[in-house]
Structures are given as C-alpha cells and as structure tokens.
Design a protein around this nucleic acid. Structure first.
Lengths: 207, 207
DNA sequence: GCGTCATGCGAACACTGTACGCAGATCGCG
DNA sequence: CGCGATCTGCGTACAGTGTTCGCATGACGC
C-alpha cells in the first residue's frame, strides 16, 4: 500500500519504544490488574498488534520485570534526618507504592527482590546508607535493612492481596467493613504499630 | 465398549477425589513449580483427563487456594513454653514450609493470607494464643502477631523467589555462591537476626 | 430390576505467548 | 540525489491454556 500524505502523518505514531510500552502497561495494570495484561490487549491500547511489542521487549516476563522496577521508581528515600524517621518514611513510601499498584504484590513471589532493576537497586543503596549513617556497623546495616524490608514487604503484600480481593468482589469497602472486615484506617494503624516495634527492635541492637 | 474382567480392575482407579487431586498437585508443584501446573498436565499425572478434575474442584483458582492451605498444614505452632522461643519456633516452621514449597511464595500476592483456609486460620489462632499467653492485651496481641507474620512472610517470600530463580538458572548453588551470591547458611543467619530483632521490639512494648 | 444420580470424558471455544518471514520506512554513505 | 542495509510493524500460524456442555457409563437406593 502506498502511503499518501493523508495517511502518513495521520497517526503521529511517535513510534513504539520500550518506555512507552512500559508506561502503557503500568496504566493497564493499575486499571485492570495483572490478569488483564496480555500482549494483545496491551498492544490494542497502544493501537498496534501484539507482535510489534516484541521488537522492544523480549518477553512478557521481561516486560513484567521492567514494569515492577518502574513502580519502585516511585519510592522515595529521604536523604538525611534522624535515622528512625527517615527509615520510617522510606518504609511508608514503599508501602504506598505497593498499595497504589497492587499488582506488584501479585508478582513479588516470582520476580521478587531478586532480579533488581536499576530503580530498586538504587533505592536499596540509599536505604542502606541511612542505616550506615545511623551508626550500624557495615555488615549489620545490611541485616537491619533486610529486616525492615522484610516486614514492610510481608505486611504490604498481604494487604495488597486483600485490597485486590475487595476490588474483585465488586462491593464497596464500606459495605464490607460493616461485616467485620478491616478498614483502611485500621490497616494504617496496624502497619504503624509493627513498623514502630520493628524499628525499636533494630535500634536496641545498634552500634 | 464392554468392560471385560481384565480391563475392569486393571486400574483400581480408587476414584478421583478432592484430596487426591490436591495431593497430586502439591507433588507436581514441588517437582516442577507453579508454571508447570496446568489442568491437563495434572490430570495426566493421575491418568485422567483435565475435564474430570472439574467434578471435584470448581476452578484452577480454587485448586490453588486448596493447595496453599494444604501447605500451611505443615506449619507447627508449639502449644506451650516461654513465649519468645515458642513464637520463634513457629516463625521458623512457617519459613521452612515456604522454602520447602517455594511456589507458595509465587501465589502469595494473589491468594495472600486473605482467603484463609482451615489450616491457616487454625495456625493463626494458635499463634494468637501464644501472644495472649505472653501477657499481651488482647487487641495488641493481634497487632504483634501480624507484625511477626509480616516479617516472616516478607523475608521468606523474597528468599523463595530467589531460590526458585536459582533453580531455574540450572547452576548449582555452590557455583553461584562463589560469584558473591548469598549461601543458605548466610540466609539462615539473616533470618535469625531479623527474627530476634523483631521479637525484641515486640517484647519491649508488651503488657 | 429399574430409575436416579454421580462421575469420567470427548469435543469445542475463546484466548494465551511467541516464532517466522514479508513489507515498507528510515538512515548512512557515495 | 540514489541506493543498499538495517530497523520496524505486523499477518499468519502453532502449541498450549482454562473452562463449558452434553453424552455415556458406572454405582446405588428401593
């Protein structure tokens, strides 16, 4: 087919690119959850066809790794300040990211913190620096960080799974709360309690 | 086709049942991981056809819930003893279960601790009793338990994801350790450090 | 012995991830 | 400008997925 001037610039196209694909995938995931993500539906959103995506992304698995790391990019780690509040803020930020993108929880067991993309490894480094700055000896700082991350991840994964279940059930959160299910406010309190206790425990053993 | 005496009792059949299906699924999952589980392959192992399974299990999703709860059945919660050692033992037991069945981690974000089957809800109750027995006021016991579970789940999910990645990579663990990757012994130490710190933090705030 | 009900299963459907090869666009170089 | 090479989108196709429906065959109660 000849591309007349009319059809040419019709769709500015802007061209597919890994970044644009990842961005569109995040959007789709936020809207419809993990199981709604297929190469074909994603392609449809960007109005292309599935096979075109493979020029910029090797796998669906690779795409998911990219998308997860993209989410970690939203995590904020304070650069300075008293260590307990800085670490607590970082923890809250991580929790916020996962609750904002609950599908992250769905793939954590598969992608894990194992394959670390640039964003996650950057955040880990900054977090580690907080502990070192707090006076933890180098090797213990690593252990302390992992302890704190373990708590936040575990707590938040469960919470995200729960929130997604709520969403699927179609009922509003308020309705369910009446039936004895935990509310957002209560989950916040729960998280804060545990976070404080964990940090207290870590503080006890420092340098 | 007539069923002669020969073909009749050839396969004692024993009949399909939900329990047998769940057991076979656990076996398959332990051997080949989550993504190797399809209704057809599972059926083939029990030599039946996929559609027969649906007489005893509503969904693949339901099957997975059942299988996960089955795994939780292996978790041991001590009934008595000083609270810190009892709770620590329960935590270690939970970690052991997940490491023995790493696919549990793969579905935690989807099934979560949200849909609790009989085994999980039983273990939660027993665990809660430990905290209550330790002198935590009733409402705080729940928070403390969730804190501890959060830590164990988060830590262990990451570890299981990592172990599965190792398995897929085909290389032996020893080879990778040389290249600076954490060894089993080190992961044990890490877990124990965090567990101790978390329990210390919880103890600080009790009754 | 007969009707009822539970069970296994063959066929089919809509959908998935992805390999392959062709076409058209784009770009570097003469 | 022109031409070859390389890049990009995509149509087609394949093997595999979860699941539904309807038929047949077996077991069981009366």
């Amino acid at each position: 087919m000849i591309s007349s001037v009319w059809t040419r610039e019709q769709r500015p196209r802007a061209g597919l690119s890994q970044d644009r694909i990842v961005a569109a995938a995040v959007e789709l995931l936020d809207a419809d959850g993990l199981e709604a993500l297929s190469m074909r539906t994603l392609a449809a959103r960007m109005d292309t066809k599935a096979t075109s995506l493979y020029r910029h992304v090797a796998n669906k698995d690779e795409l998911i790794e990219l998308v997860v790391d993209e989410a970690y990019g939203e995590m904020e780690v304070p650069a300075e300040g008293p260590w307990r509040t800085s670490v607590a803020d970082a923890a809250r930020s991580l929790r916020a990211v996962v609750l904002r993108h609950p599908w992250v929880a769905s793939v954590l067991g598969q992608v894990g913190l194992a394959e670390l993309g640039p964003n996650l490894s950057d955040r880990s480094a900054r977090l580690l620096a907080l502990f070192v700055g707090a006076g933890f000896p180098d090797d213990e700082a690593d252990l302390a960080m992992k302890t704190m991350l373990g708590y936040v991840v575990g707590m938040t994964v469960s919470e995200a799974a729960y929130v997604q279940l709520l969403a699927r059930s179609g009922q509003s959160e308020d309705e369910l709360v009446v039936r004895g299910v935990t509310s957002k406010a209560l989950r916040d309190k729960t998280f804060e309690y545990g976070l404080e206790r964990v940090l207290a425990g870590l503080g006890e053993g420092r340098s």
